[in-house]
């Protein structure tokens, strides 16, 4: 069953094509990720799907409803958490929540079950003004407010940007629980490591989707064997490898350098031979499974060629 259908959506701002002929489908109950950097077009897509922005061309439906014709109906069934904190700073935690419940003609009590796990973490501060909350707590309150009318589908625009590793992990655990309750979730993030937590992802860059698939399949489609290498002087190794005629691509990746070779049948031994040319101390080479970020970089390079 399809929850969201996007067909050839285009949105331009002046000369800038923010969304360039984007099409995809999201199934009911799916946790779908839009993965890409700032300026990729993620927010424009969210705003089009939540009926806050009109596309130049193309069509989109949410739960079978047209984003232009049926915008009022859509607004009643979606929950939207924008990238920028958009609650009322001068209202308390409780007042914000009550406000959003009232706007949707419901009460906190009616749908309390849905937000219980999240709300209980901020309940001790229910009389504090939203503007005085810490980043992590604001994020939890915003999620509660987006959920209080029991939406069928939840749109979360970069909910974890600028948030530390611990809070990010907690947030994704909350999303996992919401998914179990059958809510369709579309979430965007610039953090590639979060992509693996989604059922399916779209890798998006400069307004275009480069690939849509499950995280596992995206990684599997990586075109060549990928190697990780390191040496005591890793910066020297990076320079050497970049200058080497046998190396195809090569970039820093945390503790290691990730590289592919021009030869399709390269193995760890042949990479070791190339990397060992300058006799660097502490050299280590191994064959590795690519991550989503490796795939993203690979697709970006293919597209720019």
């Amino acid at each position: 069953m399809v929850s969201v259908e996007v067909k050839s959506i285009v949105k331009t701002y002046g000369d800038v094509k923010a969304v360039n002929d984007v099409s995809f489908e999201v199934q009911k109950g799916e946790l779908f990720g839009l993965i890409g950097p700032d300026g990729a077009g993620k927010t424009s897509l969210f705003r089009i799907l939540t009926t806050l922005l009109l596309a130049d061309s193309g069509t989109a439906t949410v739960e079978g409803l047209d984003v232009v014709k049926d915008y009022r109906k859509i607004r009643n069934i979606v929950g939207y958490m924008p990238g920028r904190f958009s609650l009322y700073q001068d209202l308390t935690v409780k007042e914000n929540l009550t406000f959003f419940a009232t706007v949707f003609s419901t009460t906190i009590e009616e749908n309390y079950e849905l937000i219980k796990d999240i709300y209980e973490q901020i309940k001790p501060f229910s009389n504090r003004r939203a503007g005085k909350l810490s980043g992590g707590m604001k994020q939890k309150l915003a999620l509660c407010c987006a959920l209080i009318h029991k939406p069928v589908i939840l749109f979360l625009d970069e909910p974890t940007t600028g948030v530390d590793v611990v809070s990010r992990k907690e947030f994704w655990e909350m999303l996992g629980k919401l998914k179990k309750q059958g809510i369709t979730i579309i979430v965007s993030t610039p953090y590639m490591d979060e992509a693996t937590l989604c059922d399916r992802i779209a890798l998006i860059q400069n307004g275009s989707i480069m690939s849509i698939n499950t995280p596992g399949n995206i990684v599997q489609r990586f075109p060549k064997p990928l190697f990780a290498a390191k040496a005591d002087n890793i910066y020297k190794l990076l320079h050497d490898l970049r200058a080497d005629a046998e190396v195809e691509s090569c970039y820093a990746f945390g503790e290691y350098i990730h590289l592919t070779m021009k030869a399709n049948d390269a193995d760890a031994l042949s990479v070791m031979r190339v990397a060992g040319r300058n006799n660097l101390e502490g050299l280590e080479v191994k064959l590795i499974t690519p991550t989503i970020e490796d795939s993203f970089i690979c697709l970006m390079n293919e597209n720019s060629e």
């Binding site: 700032d38 940007t161 860059q205 970039y251």
Partner: peptide, 24 residues
């Protein structure tokens, strides 16, 4: 202070090349 927030993965690495060079 968080110089690479929201930047694409290729640019993020180019940025770090510049950091390495400055340190060198």
């Amino acid at each position: 202070d968080e110089p690479t927030g929201g930047v694409d993965p290729v640019t993020r690495r180019q940025f770090w090349d510049m950091i390495y060079e400055a340190a060198a």
